[in-house]
Nucleic acid binder design. Structure first.
Lengths: 118, 118
DNA sequence: TAGACACATAATAAAATACTTATATAATTA
DNA sequence: TAATTATATAAGTATTTTATTATGTGTCTA
């Protein structure tokens, strides 16, 4: 989930689209003209942004108008900061990794040298 | 700059490393053991994280201890939110794009149809 | 209703990333 | 001082992303 969003934000064209949509709603055709990029290129980047929940769009006649989902962007970032801050023991998906965290930093290396538990 | 950081965060292994280092300082060898991944793999991901300014490291004997640069992470995220919020006209790198923003959404399409300025 | 238009998607080519295996280096220990 | 250890880096391969070209679909307009 964070991965999808960060991956979407980690690309220069998509960052520009985000910034443009933060300024104002635009149709695909506007973005094409503003960024001087091919229509499929814009279309595909928008798809990635929509998948990440960062951009909303709707039809108006034959045009597709796009807008930035500010709320989703803010929420995701807040949730990420909370994720980083909360105790690692509370993250179910990391249970296996947590079980392998050594008691002290570097203990793993010592163990290997001794070939036994400290 | 945002691109580097988001690209660094947009990968599952690196996200796990970030979360582990948020919990505690760890040496490369610890990460290798905790994540059950090869040493070069860990090393290369750490390089990306260091380049993005998200991880600090120092030598202690033959070990390399890594820590999360919380401040840098928080700063980058705050700066990103400010970047999104501030007027697009104030962003020098986007001057060319800004000059091409149409007066109203969808105007670009109309222009094309008419083959002349509105 | 036949174009023209805005957009999406498929297919493909090119480029960037990620992972593995192999090797190098510096610190540590026997 | 010769192994061993922790880590980095290089080289090669596999995988994923990105961009282009080509084509399809629904909407509007002449």
């Amino acid at each position: 989930m964070f991965e999808l969003v960060f991956k979407a934000l980690g690309e220069p064209t998509r960052l520009k689209i985000i910034k443009l949509l933060a300024h104002r709603e635009l149709c695909v055709c506007d973005l094409e003209e503003i960024l001087q990029m091919s229509q499929p290129r814009i279309s595909q980047h928008l798809k990635v942004l929509k998948h990440a929940g960062l951009v909303n769009d709707w039809k108006e006649g034959q045009r597709t108008i796009c807008s930035l989902n500010q709320i989703s962007l803010n929420n995701t970032i807040n949730e990420f900061l909370q994720y980083i801050a909360k105790p690692i023991e509370s993250i179910a998906e990391m249970a296996e990794e947590v079980a392998r965290i050594p008691a002290v930093t570097g203990e793993t290396c010592l163990k290997r040298s001794c070939k036994e538990t400290i």
